[in-house]
Design a binder for these strands. Structure first.
Length: 352
DNA sequence: GACACGTGGCG
DNA sequence: TCGCCAAGTGT
């Protein structure tokens, strides 16, 4: 019989191997009584949803330097926050981030609620994030289940039920292990273990503090867990983007509607993006001009489809009025304000 | 439960 | 080149 896995063993490992992350109060600082700033924990958790630590770091530093408190963020104009988020993806997070900041600023005086059930009501805060904020920011024992925890639990118990059906089972395993002591450190410890040792591919079982408790290690099945439902293949869609530059250098852009793909983000006016199997999308240039097609196409893959974007450019006079979008002068616009697919279209038009 | 929702890195 | 994967949430 294997030893049962023990939270204390993992905490001991975490004391020696905790990663140094910009939003983290490490175990030694925590032991001295230094508490995390709930604003920074919340912000980092929203940014980390479905996103790698490496991708988040620079954005986190940028956001916290520019908006050090939830009140500062709540007071920021929508366009500035969306532009600052550009490139991170899942833009509904940025819209909900602002909504949430304004709720906290206006309804609770800029103080984050410590109550898990209140946290759950905040925009963009779901079961994982509410539990993570409770545990990490407030050191309340909550069961924190993210992709890392699912993977670690599936392996510890050699659970072969595919996700997402396995979720309740894995959550129960996680609940049984969650300690009352040091819940904040523990939550981060499991996630660190999943990110650095119990990785999706080629797990480093030889270094794992829970190895002797791990059923998948005993059975040699760790690398194939957790099982997942098969993915559907992505269809290919096509569209046209119109990049109009006014003679003074201003670019014609529009803010996309809040709902749907790239909602709330700046983008080039363009056609709908339709499946290549069907008819080509109707062309409707946003301004009367001599449009020239740029050679090649901007290719981009979203979560559920591939896009091939044809790019057309035009130079237009000062007095010409667009029927879509607005001209934005250069000091007020940087290509880095654009979501990646739109930046790719820009780069293609610039000959890059 | 299923699907929409981004992006960059890695093998 | 291509599929997989990352500290999920909202509908």
């Amino acid at each position: 019989m294997r030893d049962p896995a023990d939270a204390a063993d993992l905490l001991q490992w975490y004391d020696r191997h905790a990663r140094d992350l910009p939003w983290r109060v490490g175990p030694s600082a925590r032991a001295k009584g230094i508490a995390p700033d709930p604003y920074r924990i919340w912000l980092s958790e929203i940014m980390l949803q479905q996103t790698t630590v490496a991708a988040v770091k620079d954005y986190f530093r940028l956001f916290t330097e520019r908006w050090p408190t939830v009140d500062a963020l709540a007071a920021a104009p929508d366009a500035e926050v969306m532009a600052a988020w550009a490139g991170l993806g899942y833009y509904a997070r940025a819209r909900n981030l602002l909504k949430c900041a304004r709720v906290v600023a206006e309804e609770t005086g800029g103080v984050f609620p410590a109550d898990h059930d209140v946290l759950l009501t905040l925009p963009g805060v779901g079961p994982y994030t509410a539990a993570a904020i409770s545990a990490i920011a407030f050191d309340v024992p909550r069961v924190v289940v993210d992709g890392n925890v699912e993977r670690v639990m599936a392996r510890l118990h050699d659970e072969h039920t595919p996700l997402p059906a396995a979720k309740p089972i894995l959550t129960a395993y996680a609940a049984a292990l969650t300690p009352n002591a040091r819940p904040g450190d523990y939550a981060q410890a499991v996630m660190d273990l999943g990110a650095t040792i119990c990785t999706p591919k080629r797990p480093a079982c030889g270094l794992c503090p829970w190895r002797t408790s791990c059923a998948a290690w005993a059975n040699g099945t760790a690398a194939e867990l957790p099982k997942k439902a098969p993915k559907k293949r992505k269809p290919v869609r096509q569209g046209v983007a119109y990049l109009a530059r006014r003679v003074d250098g201003a670019w014609l852009l529009e803010t996309r509607p809040d709902k749907g793909l790239l909602g709330g983000m700046l983008g080039w006016p363009g056609t709908d993006w339709l499946d290549v199997e069907g008819p080509a999308p109707d062309e409707d240039p946003p301004i009367r001009a001599e449009w020239k097609t740029v050679g090649g196409e901007a290719r981009h893959t979203f979560t559920h489809f591939h896009l091939r974007l044809v790019v057309k450019t035009a130079l237009v006079p000062m007095d010409r009025k667009p029927h879509r979008g607005d001209f934005i002068a250069l000091p007020d616009f940087s290509p880095s304000d654009l979501p990646t697919v739109m930046r790719k279209a820009f780069d293609l038009a610039q000959g890059r």
